[in-house]
Design a protein around this nucleic acid. Structure first.
Lengths: 100, 100
DNA sequence: TTAATACATGTATATATGTTCATATATAAT
DNA sequence: ATTATATATGAACATATATACATGTATTAA
């Protein structure tokens, strides 16, 4: 009994979701946010990135639901959206550390 | 006590590894191989891909250790390398299926 | 209202990536 | 040795992507 390959649309969505983990800047943002929510400026300062670079990446990360956000005053605070995100980071780290 | 962000080299390696999951063709190959090892031709036939397309992607997948391979006669058989691969596919599917 | 702060968006550009065509290599069959 | 089969590799091209600059929007302060 064969395991099914997801249908085209699911494959596309899954690729789009997982692709998001494939960039060093976005990974740094995700790892940083494991310590809790942060504003855009704070993320840029912590990682040495331009504000626009951060905003563009945050837009992607929230559209693909890796992050959620909360507006307060004139600030916007971003946080990891669910446990899937940390799970993938964790498994990925395990994989790259298993060099022979 | 803050969780550490991995060092630059680890971030780069992790991004390179996870980026590999971010393409529909490669995802199809990975899902297909959940049923067991297959040769290059068989993969192309099953997914309707050119032999060269498959070979190029397999090269990537094996270099980043998502797949291992085994030569037998004039064939080369590819298989999922370890459980991390299926775990990431599984978590990713959970994520995209959790639409509100 | 005006200025300041925080964030988002549009556009341009350099670089990366996926696929295809042409061709190479390796093993097996005749 | 020649031919056939299975896979790999190199190069070219079209498309996608990350970043930076310029600018827009929203909220708060003066």
């Amino acid at each position: 009994m064969d395991v099914q390959i997801p249908v085209e649309e699911e494959i596309i969505d899954l690729a789009e979701f997982l692709k998001t983990f494939g960039d060093p800047t976005r990974l740094r943002i995700l790892f940083l946010l494991r310590n809790g929510e942060l504003g855009v400026q704070a993320i840029g300062d912590a990682l040495g990135l331009h504000q626009t670079t951060v905003s563009h990446q945050l837009k992607l990360l929230r559209h693909l639901r890796l992050l959620r956000y909360r507006k307060e005053g004139r600030g916007v605070f971003y946080a990891l959206n669910d446990s899937h995100i940390e799970q993938i980071l964790e498994i990925g780290m395990q994989h790259i550390q298993e060099q022979i």
